[in-house]
Amino acid sequence: MATKPDIEQIAGFYQPAESDQILRYFQQEHDWPENRYRYSGRQFVLPRLQTWHADANIRYSYSNNLLETRAWTPLLLAIRTKVELFLANSFNAVLVNYYRDGEDHVGWHADDEPELGKQPLIVSLSFGAERRFEFKHKLSSKTGSVVLSQGSLLIMRPSFQHLWLHRVPKTHDVCAGRINLTFRQVVI
């Protein structure tokens, strides 16, 4: 059993000035829908804003909620290309999350839905306020965390999704917003 998470953070993947521009674009120009979802027969408001962008014919759901697929924007395509070239890996979808402040969060989960295949490589880019990314082993009591900094790239290799849960918890220490892009390859 692996007791060390198979993740790697690349600080400064985007430099501060460009990171600030990307953050402003998503905060001011991106079209954010009202996010409601159903879980166990009840309706909830998602504790962050979210959009899903993918190639044609790509569908994705989590917690039995099918996400509305939007077309790639020019900015998302440019970011996708940079990530793909750096990793020598292709992605056909991105989940865009806007954490407006420290109250916005995502609970414990693994990106291990069947649509992601047996070996999901998930790559996460952060723009804006620093947030703590926590993880815990699915079987042992081992936990850990990393701080997701402005312009950083977090690489979560397949074994991470198999063995670990992760979250971005609520915090009262953060007043500013954060954009997170998680690239993935959805299996058709």
Rank of each mutant, 00 (worst) to 15 (best):
Q161P: 11
I188M: 12
P74M: 03
K136C: 10
R59P: 00
H166Y: 03
A78Y: 02
L116F: 08
T73L: 07
Y25A: 02
D111G: 11
F91L: 06
P33R: 10
E113Y: 12
V187M: 15
A17C: 00
L148G: 04
R70K: 11
Q27D: 11
N65W: 03
E134L: 05
K118N: 15
Y62P: 03
G12V: 12
L85D: 13
Y62I: 02
H53R: 09
S40K: 15
I22M: 11
A2L: 13
R100P: 00
P120S: 07
V45A: 10
L165T: 04
P169H: 06
F44S: 01
F91V: 04
F86H: 15
E29A: 10
L154Y: 13
V45F: 01
G177M: 07
D6M: 11
L49S: 14
F44T: 02
E84W: 04
I7S: 05
R100N: 04
D55L: 05
A93G: 08
L116G: 13
L76W: 13
F26N: 00
G144W: 12
F133W: 09
Y14C: 02
F44E: 02
E115N: 05
E113M: 15
V146T: 10
L148M: 14
N65C: 04
D111A: 09
H166C: 02
Q185A: 10
D6Y: 02
D112V: 11
L154R: 07
H166F: 03
V45L: 07
Y99T: 11
G151V: 09
N65I: 07
Q43Y: 08
A71Y: 06
V186E: 09
G117S: 06
E134A: 04
Y60F: 11
K142Y: 09
D20V: 11
S141G: 12
Y14I: 07
H105N: 12
H162V: 02
A78R: 12
M156H: 06
L121F: 10
F26G: 01
E103F: 01
S126G: 00
V123E: 01
R167Q: 15
L148I: 02
A11G: 01
E134S: 08
N180W: 06
E130N: 10
R157G: 07
Q15R: 12
G117P: 07
S140K: 15
I79M: 11
L67D: 03
W164A: 02
V96W: 01
V146I: 15
L85Y: 01
Y37N: 06
E8P: 00
W52D: 00
V146G: 00
L66C: 13
A78W: 04
T73N: 02
F183S: 07
L49I: 09
P114M: 07
